[in-house]
Structure formats: structure tokens, C-alpha cells
């Protein structure tokens, strides 16, 4: 009997034990689980699981290529620097400074290049590219430099990106029906997306308490409202 590990939260599915409390009988083979089965902890789809003890392709593959160097900061990079520093101010209870950084973040976000042909397929392509080369390269660079902070942020955001990949694949298969009777929450610390009735007690990726999650209401995007 085999075991499968969730690459987002570390949950282990054991064929021998099944998940009786979720209606999966002991002895249920991995292949026999329905396609739309999701991780009981974090909600990631079957594609996010790896068989325990079998190294994943990315570990065996060649060294990922270094990304191109870029000197100039793009408007969106500057926007992120500012919204991040706004958070830094908030944590130190400096609300006026936070507000100023937020204003700059918004200015830079609006001066970014508009997306002419936006699609979830393009997001999905970028997400896969991150997982195939961006994160492996980052892990190797941060590992060589023994940069623990960078490694930490890479581990979290890689898991969050795996979840994104899983959600986008599910959306392609199931369409908007996957959100029926469900709500969508985002962890405001690490960005993990959770689909369920209520936010999890602890974030499966960064372990902050559930109140740090923000509910995404859906409908028209704030950005689209701004653009009109």
C-alpha cells in the first residue's frame, strides 16, 4: 500500500487507512479516489500530491537557468515595494506613513502596462513556469547563499503557487461550479487561497490563525471598477 504527500500542506494520504471520517474507506487505492477529490487539510487537488519516497521530476532535472538581470525597477515592482513597506509601517503602528506608502503603491500600480489580452490560461502558464524554473532556481541561489529568510519566503510562496496551479486546473475541469456553496479566502500573510465554507483554523502554509484570512467576495473586480 502506498502513501501520497500533499505538496502544499504536507498531509499524507495513506491507502491503508483511507479517510473514513470523509467517506474514504481504508484500503482505497490512490487511483480509485475520484478526480475531484481534494486534500482534507488544504483543499489542493490530486495533481498536487506526490508519491512518498519517489523524487519529483524537478529534483532530477538539469540546473535551472538564471533569470535575466534587470536594472530598472518596473512600475509594478515599485508598487509592491511600496505596499510591502506600507505593511511594515502598519506593524509598527505608523498609520500615517502606511497611508503614504499605500498612495505611492496605488500610483505605481496604475502606471503599469495594461494587460491587452488577459486570460486565466496565461496566468496558468506563468504559474507553471514559476514552479518549473523560478522556484528551483531561487531555492538553489538562496541555498548557496545560506539565506534562511529568502528560503523561507520561497518555500511559502512556492506552496501558495502550487495551490494556485491546482485551483486553475480544477477551474479548467469543473468551471465556476467548483465554487458552488463555497467561499473563497486568502491568507493575508502568505497569500494561500482556500476554497471552503469557512476559513481554516490555521493557515496550512504559514500557520497563522484563521482571522488573518480575508474573504474574497467575487463579482466585479476592484481594478475593473477603477479602470472605468
Amino acid at each position: 500500500m502506498k502513501r501520497y504527500v500533499c505538496s502544499v500542506c504536507g498531509y499524507v494520504y495513506e491507502e491503508e487507512k483511507g479517510v473514513p471520517e470523509k467517506g474514504v474507506a481504508p484500503g482505497t487505492r490512490w487511483e480509485a479516489l475520484p478526480q475531484n477529490w481534494v486534500c482534507p487539510w488544504c483543499g489542493a487537488g490530486k495533481e498536487s500530491f506526490r508519491e512518498q519516497g519517489v523524487p519529483s521530476a524537478s529534483v532530477l532535472g538539469p540546473d535551472p537557468e538564471a533569470p535575466e538581470q534587470m536594472k530598472e525597477l518596473t512600475p509594478m515592482e515599485m508598487s509592491v515595494i511600496c505596499s510591502n513597506l506600507a505593511q511594515g509601517c502598519e506593524k509598527q503602528y505608523l498609520p500615517e506613513a502606511a497611508e503614504k506608502y499605500r498612495l505611492l503603491a496605488e500610483f505605481f500600480r496604475k502606471s503599469g502596462e495594461p494587460e491587452l489580452d488577459p486570460s486565466l490560461e496565461e496566468v496558468s502558464r506563468l504559474v507553471k513556469q514559476d514552479l518549473e524554473s523560478g522556484y528551483p532556481y531561487g531555492q538553489s541561489a538562496a541555498g548557496k547563499a545560506a539565506d534562511r529568510g529568502a528560503l523561507r519566503s520561497l518555500v511559502w510562496s512556492e506552496k501558495v503557487t502550487r495551490m494556485l496551479d491546482s485551483l486553475l486546473e480544477r477551474y479548467e475541469r469543473e468551471g465556476p461550479g467548483m465554487f458552488r456553496d463555497k467561499r473563497v479566502f486568502v491568507c493575508t500573510v502568505c497569500g494561500f487561497i482556500y476554497v471552503g465554507e469557512q476559513a481554516p483554523e490555521l493557515c496550512p502554509v504559514c500557520k497563522v490563525p484563521g482571522w488573518k484570512f480575508e474573504r474574497i467576495e467575487g463579482g466585479e473586480n476592484v481594478w475593473q471598477k477603477n479602470m472605468r
Binding site: 509594478m76 486568502v186 494561500f192 487561497i193 467576495e217 467575487g218 473586480n221
Partner: peptide, 22 residues
Amino acid sequence: EAIAGALPGVLAQAVARSARLT
């Protein structure tokens, strides 16, 4: 974030937010 931000729907909105946070 920029692509998802230009798309409607709860998933796109969650993606845009998540991409900003990461």
C-alpha cells in the same frame, strides 16, 4: 496580478490578491 486583475470572477480576484501578497 495584472492579468488576473483585469478578469472578472472570484477566482481571478483571489489570484490577483494572492499574487500581490506573495
